[in-house]
Write a protein that binds this DNA or RNA. Sequence first.
DNA 1: TTCTTAGTTCGACATTAATCGAACTAATAA
DNA 2: TTATTAGTTCGATTAATGTCGAACTAAGAA
Lengths: 105, 105
Amino acid sequence: MFSVSFMNIEQANSAAEDQRRVAIFKALAEQNRLRIIRVLYQTHREMTCSEVGAQLNISKSTVSYHFKALRVVGLTNTRQVAQTKYLSLQLATFDRYLPGFLATL
Amino acid sequence: MFSVSFMNIEQANSAAEDQRRVAIFKALAEQNRLRIIRVLYQTHREMTCSEVGAQLNISKSTVSYHFKALRVVGLTNTRQVAQTKYLSLQLATFDRYLPGFLATL
DNA sequence: TTCTTAGTTCGACATTAATCGAACTAATAA
DNA sequence: TTATTAGTTCGATTAATGTCGAACTAAGAA
């Protein structure tokens, strides 16, 4: 029966996993954050809030907001040197939830 | 200089492509739509609004809203038989923008 | 024709998200 | 010490999103 197979599938994927997927998609569903991800991937460079703010022409509070959005869902890492924070990609998260995605950028 | 490499990358990815990516992520960044995608993928079956509404326990107007959201960004196909519309995955879109994603479900 | 079934569209409402400036902390430089 | 630089947090505002029920269209059944 259809309802049976549907239930099995729902059970096989925990609600927690699903929430994680939705959170990751939400994080990527925004133009500026997507640009940040692409630059991090294509330049093989870390970035700071100041750099991003200057390039994307958005206020530093907004950049900080986007950096946090990417970090809390595990898409990026933060390395701090004094008061400067360097952002880089957390490749393990991409590999697990979006394998092959970065290469499409 | 950093700004130069950044600009080149921005140019290499058209604004249209980026908007498409954002639209696709937005479509997937919702619990019920993600469930619909998973069921379509794992059952290798088409689905109707009625079926989805019954299984996910949401109103038919909401189901219709989600079906449209998936269709307009090209994640799904619709095959109509009389007044019934059958939804299926448009695999080409996944292959191009999210290769490997479906297999993680 | 009348009734049912499958979806769509239209307000309306509540929730979330993006953005900014201002005020803040903390580290470094002058 | 004072000034500068890098980020964060806090309202506030505006825009977008998810949800529903009600009214609608269109196809088939009785």
